[in-house]
Nucleic acid binder design. Structure first.
Lengths: 201, 201
DNA sequence: GTCTATACGTCGATAGAC
DNA sequence: GTCTATCGACGTATAGAC
């Protein structure tokens, strides 16, 4: 796209107001989702809670799917502003902390499950992009942590970091699901078991 | 449930035809889901593929949710008619076989993910009942297998069978998801890793 | 650019005809 | 037992007010 004007065309006029409004909507939507689940989440219902019309949501987010993805992304971003993370923290410890936080915001976990399930179907590019990127990034991050821990002697050095990363993420997600369906399911016990299995003997 | 009449009241009139028709619909629906994913799955679309109207589906299954649950249940039942299972088969081996089969019927795995995600939300009794029962039953079955394997010396005897069962199920589900999103994800490697971790040293 | 009003087609569910 | 007809709610798209 040649011939770009030296004055970028976007932030002209009341553009700033738009991004602020968009942020307002996202913040409010996160509260709504965290409280009551991701059920009853039509554009009209969300719009009513936020205080706009459903057409306004379409204006800012394009589609319901993109809105849901943005809500979850933003909630992760805000949740990520937690105490600075020790990079040598064990991957399982990291997931256990995450699971603990998630128990307080069940609606966001429901939203996450919905997004992942949607991503598996064809014809949902926004959800697919979100899930693919998230899993690939998480696997990479966790694999790096595994290597650090292996060097520090806290994780068995004979195990493949990539496989460990995928396994820890899968266990974390799957146990979260089982726990949401049955709070007697041994979520933390199973994560501790995995931690023990990975530990250097 | 006392006082059952010797002549059960249900199969009166052309009831037998009804169950046959219902079975026909289920069989056809399973084919449809196995082929193309669980997307495009409105009652009207399914009805068209099956050759009836959407009102007929509602007559037999009550709601879309119940139809989806029944389709998956029936597909599991039919898939369960596979080679008799060695009860001492290791839990991870069992899940690896299952994963192998599932790769051929991606649409049914998509349907499963949708059902589980739906079950996490409020106000979906059929999906919730399905998922709760399935996980509880699977955990029980796998825990029993773990105990057998522990006695046979194939799984470390110092580990909690219930926690192992939950962990194996979670890993299996979660890795399936990651693999569907990215066929480079180390699904089998991670399951083999888990097998190795659980093995008696 | 921001946002409302409105309309379109499809959805799950249901009632009633046959 | 299966259909047609109809209902309210949905996601999306667009025209135009400001």
């Amino acid at each position: 796209m040649p011939d770009e004007s030296p004055n970028p065309p976007q932030p002209r006029g009341s553009y700033a107001k738009g991004v602020a409004r968009r942020q307002e909507i996202l913040d409010r939507a996160i509260e709504v989702f965290a409280q009551r689940g991701s059920d009853r989440t039509s554009m009209r219902a969300i719009a009513k809670e936020v205080g706009v019309t459903h057409a306004a949501l379409a204006h800012y987010f394009g589609s319901l799917e993109e809105l849901l993805v943005e809500v979850y992304r933003e909630s992760e971003r805000q949740g990520g502003a937690r105490p600075p993370v020790n990079p040598e923290e064990t991957p399982v410890e990291m997931m256990r902390r995450s699971a603990e936080v998630n128990r307080e915001v069940v609606g966001l976990v429901q939203l996450y499950s919905t997004l992942v399930a949607t991503a598996l179907e064809d014809g949902h590019p926004a959800a697919h992009e979100f899930a693919t990127t998230r899993f690939a990034g998480l696997r990479q991050d966790l694999a790096a942590r595994v290597r650090l821990n292996q060097q520090a002697g806290r994780i068995r050095a004979d195990l493949d970091p990539e496989a460990i990363a995928a396994l820890v993420i899968a266990a974390s997600d799957g146990l979260q699901t089982q726990w949401l369906l049955d709070s007697d399911a041994p979520q933390d016990a199973a994560l501790l078991l995995l931690e023990q299995l990975l530990s250097r003997p």
